[in-house]
Simulated assay, not measured.
Amino acid sequence: MTLAADTREAVRRHPFLFDALRAGVVNYSAAARFLNVDGETDAVVAALRRFAEDLPEYERPGSAPPVNMQSGLGEGDPADALLAVGDLALVPDSGSLTAITAGGDADAAALRQVLGRLETAEVPVEAAAFGGGSLVVVVGRRSGPDALRAVEDALAG
């Protein structure tokens, strides 16, 4: 592979850097050192700049969809689940977890934004999913208010 191809592949392994390139907020020299691509740092910097020029501009999420909080989730019958992942089915009125749900046009990018914001807010996530234009993240009961604020913030852009 070429140095440019190696650089693009290395960036794609780090979504945060991919987004930063799209947003135009990258110190290219620091990014080149971080990526540790074989080649002269100046050549990797040049490859990063060219790659960034070809990327679509970063778009913040649109208007914030309604965000709701529902406490009391726990394991139960998959037919009644608010969220089911593998063998885990979380249903209302069955436990001590809290679901944060958002409607609108939620997609993988919105969920990624939400999960990143929850991580930086140090809110542990028990489960998460999106589909049909909605997303849900499940956290511990005590983390519910912090998670609600973080999700609202992430989706407001």
Results as ranks from 00 to 15, higher is better:
residue 66 P to E: 13
residue 71 S to F: 12
residue 60 R to H: 12
residue 67 V to H: 01
residue 69 M to W: 09
residue 68 N to F: 14
residue 62 G to V: 04
residue 85 V to C: 12
residue 58 Y to Q: 10
residue 74 G to S: 09
residue 77 D to A: 03
residue 64 A to H: 00
residue 85 V to T: 14
residue 77 D to M: 02
residue 64 A to S: 10
residue 59 E to Q: 14
residue 88 L to M: 15
residue 64 A to G: 08
residue 59 E to C: 11
residue 65 P to K: 00
residue 59 E to M: 12
residue 91 V to H: 02
residue 45 V to W: 02
residue 83 L to Q: 10
residue 57 E to Y: 00
residue 91 V to N: 04
residue 59 E to I: 10
residue 62 G to L: 08
residue 87 D to P: 10
residue 45 V to Q: 08
residue 58 Y to F: 15
residue 70 Q to T: 15
residue 88 L to H: 04
residue 57 E to V: 08
residue 76 G to Q: 01
residue 86 G to E: 14
residue 46 A to N: 02
residue 70 Q to Y: 13
residue 79 A to S: 13
residue 45 V to H: 01
residue 74 G to D: 10
residue 45 V to A: 03
residue 47 A to H: 00
residue 63 S to R: 10
residue 47 A to P: 03
residue 80 D to Y: 08
residue 74 G to M: 06
residue 91 V to R: 02
residue 90 L to H: 02
residue 84 A to C: 08
residue 65 P to E: 00
residue 50 R to W: 02
residue 61 P to G: 07
residue 74 G to Q: 10
residue 73 L to Q: 08
residue 68 N to Y: 14
residue 73 L to Y: 08
residue 80 D to H: 12
residue 65 P to W: 00
residue 85 V to E: 15
residue 73 L to H: 08
residue 85 V to A: 14
residue 86 G to Q: 05
residue 76 G to A: 02
residue 71 S to N: 11
residue 50 R to H: 05
residue 76 G to N: 03
residue 48 L to C: 01
residue 70 Q to H: 14
residue 61 P to D: 05
residue 81 A to R: 05
residue 54 D to E: 15
residue 65 P to M: 00
residue 81 A to D: 09
residue 77 D to W: 00
residue 56 P to L: 12
residue 57 E to C: 01
residue 56 P to M: 06
residue 79 A to M: 12
residue 86 G to R: 10
residue 61 P to S: 10
residue 76 G to P: 00
residue 89 A to M: 11
residue 62 G to D: 12
residue 47 A to Q: 01
residue 71 S to P: 06
residue 86 G to W: 10
residue 55 L to H: 06
residue 60 R to M: 12
residue 86 G to M: 12
residue 69 M to E: 15
residue 64 A to W: 00
residue 67 V to E: 04
residue 68 N to S: 15
residue 47 A to M: 05
residue 83 L to T: 04
residue 74 G to V: 07
residue 88 L to P: 10
residue 72 G to A: 09
residue 76 G to S: 01
residue 45 V to D: 02
residue 75 E to M: 09
residue 51 F to E: 07
residue 75 E to T: 06
residue 47 A to R: 00
residue 61 P to H: 01
residue 91 V to D: 01
residue 80 D to P: 05
residue 72 G to C: 05
residue 62 G to Q: 06
residue 74 G to R: 05
residue 78 P to A: 09
residue 74 G to T: 04
residue 57 E to S: 05
residue 73 L to D: 07
residue 71 S to L: 15
residue 76 G to W: 00
residue 87 D to F: 02
residue 56 P to E: 09
